[in-house]
């Protein structure tokens, strides 16, 4: 039974939002969980974090950036089109408790999955300080949503076109050094960003959680493609995570494993380009 795309929009250049009808997934989804989808018979299975879910509307919201062949193909689909397969909600849900004051950091496409977590933490009675960052203002999205889901929101851009000119870590450092008691930090974004956030919070001993995005195939613990090293122990991100203690994660291993299929990704794109009509 295919999964119909209800709504689709390009939020900012190359980053797309898709609301997909998936009643059972929408009913059970929790912040921090992900789905695995496969576009068609020839497709690969890719994990995407659930950015939002609406049990009444029976949809899940997915946000993705065009990077490789699959995400480009996904971006070419419109409302009314469908996806062959979508399984979820997978992974362990984010811990939503009353921690006190929580800093939520979202970088790039990572703003999408941090949103439901921030909202959940607010509803649970936390003070939520959110920091969202992007390379430039024109690819920053969901600022309004994050504003609503946070007690306080900071925006950073690498090029200074909006908010703080610099990185999210600058603000994380400032917030911690301001002396306010921070009970927890959760950071989702590119591995380099998550590693940097972990580096900033570690000296202060602030509990920090990151959501890892390794390559996956089945997403149910069956293949072990998503092996990550946490505190010296091999874990499967799909069933043991995707969230882990940032201070224990081996980010170097994560990044090298993410680069495993770069030659094949290029080959797939070249094959696609060659197959396109040349008129």
């Amino acid at each position: 039974m295919p999964f119909t795309i209800r709504e689709k929009q390009e939020l900012v250049p190359t980053i797309h939002q898709m609301d997909v009808a998936a009643p059972l997934v929408a009913e059970k989804a929790m912040p921090g969980q992900f789905v695995i989808l496969r576009i068609d018979e020839c497709g690969e299975r890719i994990p995407l974090t659930i950015a939002d879910f609406d049990a009444a509307d029976k949809t899940v919201t997915l946000i993705f950036q065009e990077i490789g062949k699959t995400t480009r193909q996904l971006a070419s689909l419109d409302a009314g089109d469908s996806i062959a397969d979508l399984a979820g909600p997978l992974g362990r849900a984010s811990a939503i408790e009353r921690f006190g004051t929580v800093v939520c950091v979202g970088g790039g496409v990572g703003i999408a999955p941090i949103f439901p977590i921030a909202r959940g933490l607010m509803e649970a009675g936390n003070r939520v300080i959110s920091i969202i960052g992007a390379r430039s203002a024109d690819i920053l999205f969901w600022e309004e949503r994050m504003e609503e889901a946070s007690s306080k929101l900071y925006v950073t851009t690498d090029d200074g076109t909006k908010g703080h000119h610099g990185f999210v870590t600058d603000i994380v450092q400032n917030v911690i050094e301001s002396g306010e008691r921070i009970d927890r930090v959760i950071a989702i974004g590119p591995p380099v960003m998550m590693r940097a956030v972990a580096g900033v919070t570690k000296p202060f001993g602030v509990k920090t959680v990151v959501s890892l995005n390794p390559i996956m195939v089945d997403g149910t613990g069956m293949c072990g493609a998503c092996r990550v090293l946490v505190g010296g122990v091999t874990k499967f991100a799909c069933v043991d995570g995707p969230e882990f203690d940032a201070h224990e994660v081996d980010f170097t291993l994560l990044m090298s494993r993410l680069a495993m299929y770069l030659p094949e990704e290029k080959e797939a794109l070249d094959y696609e380009a060659a197959a396109e009509p040349t008129i």
Binding site: C42, G43, E44, R45, K69, E264, E265, E267, Y271
Partner: peptide, 12 residues
């Protein structure tokens, strides 16, 4: 995932 048919199939 039929990776033996890559790149016709997407999984490498």
């Amino acid at each position: 995932m039929k990776a033996y048919l890559f790149p016709e199939f997407d999984t490498p």
